[in-house]
């Protein structure tokens, strides 16, 4: 059994519709039920805390870490304010927030904890905590997404979180708050007629879902720049959330993925996905993180995995394993 401090990872969408308007669209209702499944998973996970990285909390001065032990407010989304208000009273693991901050600092990152009455916790974090942890069964820690950070900074942020967890002796579930494609409809729609904004977004979402269902977290992480170019509105420099998740969970494909739900929410590709550690890679299509000894041609990593599986099996060794020569 793995002694890794992350016992599970999740991608959860942050728009407020599954929380506030689940009855207005069948898909939003299904997403809400998917959140409820994740709630049960988290309860059974043995985790001590929920560690969140919210793409809906932008920061400028490095990364910020929520450390208010009991944030209380009534939140209204700046865009979907007509859906109503969300009163909340959360519990944060302030001690871990400080440990996380120190681990970041020791690795050269600019971070700070924030603990201020009335600090505006972002809609995505509020929605995900209300749906997966409504009774504060576990304390949480939320980390912002720095608008200027790119891969290195984001990966180090993930590694610092793991280090802090190891030092604390705590286990956590890692949650990314964000969507797959993030393009919203540009006009008001009848909720019953919601759909993914474009066919292109839909195809990319399905590709990412297929990867994650096969446990290929690192592959998705390595495709992040392409996903950003193809299926994301460029609000920030890059699509960073899977860099963080793979750094936190382990940069490989040894996972079992579960897609609990995937639905359009006002045009975005909103998916509820879980990843658990597995003994073996479900597929063998690592993008480029390996150090191959024999060239076997280009891997068509964007093709459905099963088609290419037999052709490029890196588990198959053609010579002695490294270190075994002579």
């Amino acid at each position: 059994m793995s002694d890794h401090p992350i016992v599970g990872g999740y991608l959860l969408p942050g728009l407020p519709h599954p929380l506030l308007a689940a009855d207005q669209n069948a898909g939003w209702g299904r997403l809400r039920r998917a959140f409820e499944q994740v709630r049960e998973d988290i309860r059974q996970s043995g985790a001590d805390l929920i560690l969140m990285y919210s793409t809906m909390w932008p920061s400028v001065i490095g990364h910020q870490i929520q450390a208010d032990p009991e944030p209380v407010w009534t939140h209204v989304d700046e865009l979907f304010h007509d859906l109503g208000a969300i009163p909340y009273h959360f519990k944060m693991d302030s001690d871990f927030a400080e440990q996380f901050h120190l681990a970041c600092k020791n690795r050269g990152l600019a971070t700070r904890t924030v603990s201020y009455k009335g600090f505006p916790i972002d809609t995505g974090s509020v929605v995900c905590l209300k749906l997966t942890n409504p009774d504060n069964f576990l304390p949480a820690v939320i980390c912002s997404s720095n608008v200027y950070a790119d891969r290195a900074e984001t990966v180090v942020l993930g590694k610092a979180a793991v280090e802090a967890l190891k030092q604390s002796g705590k286990k956590a579930v890692a949650v990314v708050v964000g969507t797959l494609s993030n393009r919203l409809h540009q006009t008001w729609i009848d909720p019953a007629e919601d759909h993914i904004h474009s066919l292109k977004d839909q195809e990319w979402n399905q590709k990412i879902l297929a990867f994650l269902e096969a446990g290929r977290l690192e592959d998705v992480a390595q495709l992040s720049r392409q996903i950003h170019a193809e299926a994301r509105v460029h609000k920030v420099v890059n699509f960073k959330s899977f860099w963080w998740l793979s750094a936190v969970m382990g940069a490989h494909n040894l996972y079992q993925g579960t897609v609990y739900g995937y639905e359009p929410v006002y045009g975005t590709g909103s998916a509820v996905i879980g990843l658990k550690r597995a003994a073996h890679a479900a597929q063998d299509l690592e993008f480029d993180e390996e150090s191959p000894d024999v060239y076997r041609g280009d891997r068509n990593v964007l093709a459905p995995s099963l088609e290419a599986r037999g052709e490029f099996d890196s588990q198959l060794q053609v010579g002695p394993a490294l270190g075994e020569e002579d």
Partner: peptide
């Protein structure tokens, strides 16, 4: 209400 700057909460509450 109270406005807390999400970027500079140390400066603006």
């Amino acid at each position: 209400s109270l406005s807390v700057d999400p970027i500079f909460p140390n400066l603006f509450r």
